[in-house]
Simulated scan of single mutants.
Amino acid sequence: MTARLNPYIGFKDDARQAMEFYKSIFGGELVINTFGEFGAAEGAEADKVMHAHLESPSGFVLMASDTPEGMDHTPGSAITISLSGEASDGLQGYWDQLSDGGTVTMPLEKQMWGDVFGMCTDKFGVGWMVNIATANAPTGAEATT
């Protein structure tokens, strides 16, 4: 049996917009189901996302939902998603898009361990880390945004 570990992100009323944003970056197929589709809510709550699933052509999987009324929600407080590999152009592109409109907490630049690494929080409050392995890592101005 094959098992997979996937990030599941909780949002407060903007899961649809966030997942569409991630789809614009990573591509792939996005499936969104609402609370109303399953009879779990009525009125304004019915249009909220009960479950969203994005699977990219690269094999990345992100899942998400809106937090129902009455449940606590603290954006980005307990999750950071890490993207790493040797695909310099692809990872640089993801960084550029994820950090656009967000907050860079550590610029994407060469680190003491030799790789290019950066951290940001996107415009939806989700933390991201990007690590580009040394063999294909950009240097100098290429490694910054």
Rank of each mutant, 00 (worst) to 15 (best):
M119G: 12
P75M: 08
M1V: 12
T67G: 03
M50E: 11
E42T: 13
G10I: 00
K12A: 11
T105E: 14
M112R: 07
M106C: 02
T74L: 09
T80W: 08
V49D: 13
I132H: 08
Y22W: 08
T74E: 15
A137N: 09
P7M: 10
G114K: 01
T80S: 15
G118P: 07
M119R: 13
G39N: 13
T121I: 13
V130G: 09
A52Q: 12
Q17R: 08
T74K: 12
H53Q: 07
W95Q: 05
G36A: 05
L54E: 10
E55W: 02
S84H: 11
G118R: 04
Q111R: 03
D72Y: 03
V116F: 08
T34A: 10
I25L: 07
N6Q: 05
G36W: 08
S88H: 06
Q97L: 05
L91C: 08
V49F: 11
P107Q: 11
K123Y: 03
P7H: 13
A78F: 13
T34N: 11
E109L: 01
R16G: 03
V31S: 12
D66E: 13
G118C: 06
H51W: 14
G93W: 07
T145K: 14
I81F: 13
G101D: 02
W113H: 10
W113N: 06
E37R: 07
E69S: 13
P7Y: 14
F11S: 06
K23V: 00
G39K: 08
G90E: 15
